[in-house]
């Protein structure tokens, strides 16, 4: 392949906030001393009066966002996924989820592609935590195009939203003229008939790479991109599983509670189908480069290829 354009979804997030600021005058952005890393600094540079640094106090930041939303602001709250979803879980549940407030959480540095910082900062549990909160929309964009679309969709939607962004630069895969984004809608990014690979976030690219390798072996894989983990597009998964009879899920997240679990929740009730869940197999991550970690934990194209091949 020729040089593929790569951009980290956190960068897309910061750019989207800035680009949408005029259209959404009530948008305010909160951060907890990580504006350079979360890329809300891009918004801060353009709109310093609408960027509120709360200091290293994520629990208070979520509460402040809740209060702001009750007086007409649309707060986008940012920190690393570990702190936004992990440390402040109960604040998100009780101060945002229960009152169903119009608070958006932009959580960056999710998953093992945080890389060198190691296990303390690699949040592989945030999707699980956030999808248990009633009424919470959970999105995991796969690239720059989808990340920007998800930020816009979150602003247009009334209610709490959690969006997961990554640290590492990832290929742009959705840059197509017919690309459309809708909360709760998945996309078949590669049609196939032998096995369904359901992927989210940066793993969509790995799944597409794996599908090409599988094709060389005569296995025709269908790849579905699920950006919205909740509410899940059940129809697209059921329809594909009906056709292929085998489903593999791929995510940069624990196999407990994330995309894999959401897919199993759906299929076990509506169309029992064998499912193989790829992701972090109930282990903590470790230091290393993003690429090395993704390869070690079998979430790159080669790893997904090998797992799918063994499964079908």
């Amino acid at each position: 392949m020729a040089d593929v354009k790569k951009i980290a979804t956190r960068e897309s997030y910061g750019n989207a906030l800035k680009d949408l600021a005029e259209e959404f005058p009530n948008l305010v952005v909160l951060d907890a001393d990580l504006a350079e890393a979360t890329k809300t600094g891009i918004f801060r540079k353009a709109y310093p009066d609408r960027h509120i640094d709360c200091g290293i106090a994520e629990c208070n930041m979520i509460g402040v966002a809740a209060g702001l939303s009750t007086v007409g602001k649309i707060p986008f709250v940012s920190s690393f996924a570990m702190f936004a979803a992990g440390r402040a879980y109960e604040q998100v549940r009780n101060s945002v989820g229960y009152p169903h407030l119009n608070v958006k959480i932009g959580a960056t540095h999710a998953g093992i592609t945080v890389g060198e910082d190691g296990a303390t900062h690699q949040c592989n549990e945030d999707i699980a935590l956030m999808r248990t909160i009633p009424g919470m929309v959970v999105m995991v964009p796969s690239d720059d195009v989808e990340a920007k679309a998800a930020v816009r969709a979150a602003l247009e939607y009334e209610g709490p939203v959690y969006i997961r962004f990554g640290r590492a630069a990832v290929p742009v895969i959705n840059d197509k003229p017919d690309y459309k984004f809708e909360i709760g809608k998945g996309t078949v990014v590669r049609p196939g008939k032998d096995v369904t690979i359901v992927a989210t976030g940066i793993c969509v690219d790995s799944a597409l790479g794996a599908a090409e390798k599988l094709a060389a072996d005569g296995i025709d894989a269908e790849v579905i991109n699920i950006c919205t983990i909740k509410p899940l597009d059940e129809d697209i998964i059921i329809n594909s599983a009906k056709k292929t009879g085998k489903v593999v899920t791929v995510e940069e997240h624990s196999v407990i509670g994330g995309l894999g679990s959401a897919v199993c929740d759906c299929l076990s009730e509506k169309l029992p189908t064998p499912v193989k869940k790829l992701g972090m197999q109930d282990v903590f991550g470790e230091s290393g480069s993003a690429g090395a970690l993704v390869a070690k934990y079998g979430l790159d194209a080669d790893g997904v290829y090998a797992s799918v091949k063994a499964f079908v």
């Binding site: 509460g63 402040v64 209060g67």
Partner: peptide
Amino acid sequence: IHIPGVDMSSGSLGQGISAAVGMALGAKLG
């Protein structure tokens, strides 16, 4: 918050003050 007159759901201690701070900040910003 859905009860008439109640401005914020609360009860998990320590959280209400943050919401109040957010409301006060919202007044200043607006």
